[in-house]
């Protein structure tokens, strides 16, 4: 009997369920504010993550191509470093006037740069070691990701 009562209650309640409820405060001013903050940066939001992705993919593609064809003229690690340095500088220039979302991002970047130096040092002894080259590519990618992430224009408060 009670089971039937509950089932009836459930069916009736679901049928009568209010699809609309008003929020207790006016939410529009906050939304409007967030939109006005975000709008001028909209193109950057759309473009930079894509560029970062392209850069990261290019680093990966470069590494793969070098590993496959192993050009004798230039060491793989050196070619990768040159390309990465160019990408990193380009990002840092793009973001130089934009505030970072965290205060300690440069410290994080320094730590990644230290790891980069250690791998480069190891590569001096084994310039074509695939594991080291892969680690170097990952460290480069992490640096690009970090720079992008801390500068990505983001709606932070309403």
């Amino acid at each position: 009997m009670s089971k039937l009562d509950f089932e009836e209650f459930l069916v009736e309640s679901l049928n009568r369920s209010q699809t609309e409820l008003p929020p207790q405060k006016d939410l529009w001013p906050g939304i409007e504010k967030a939109l006005s903050h975000k709008l001028p940066q909209q193109t950057k939001v759309a473009v930079w993550p894509k560029l970062a992705g392209v850069a990261a993919c290019t680093v990966g593609a470069l590494l793969t191509a070098q590993l496959l064809f192993n050009t004798p003229q230039q060491k793989t690690g050196v070619a990768m470093s040159d390309y990465f340095t160019e990408q990193k500088q380009s990002l840092l220039v793009q973001y130089q006037n934009q505030p970072a979302l965290t205060n300690n991002w440069q410290q994080q970047l320094n730590e990644l740069e230290e790891a980069e130096s250690a791998i480069k040092q190891a590569l001096e002894n084994e310039p074509e070691n695939p594991a080291l080259l892969k680690m170097l590519a990952q460290i480069y990618q992490q640096q690009l990701d970090l720079i992008n992430k801390v500068h990505a224009p983001k709606w932070q408060q309403i």
């Binding site: 209010q18 699809t19 609309e20 409820l21 008003p22 929020p23 939410l27 529009w28 939304i31 409007e32 939109l35």
Partner: peptide
């Protein structure tokens, strides 16, 4: 058009909030 967006917000905010 942000004014149109405000109108769309008014139409749907109660459903979204619920």
């Amino acid at each position: 058009d942000q004014q149109a967006y405000a109108a769309l917000y008014t139409l749907h905010v109660k459903r979204v909030y619920a």
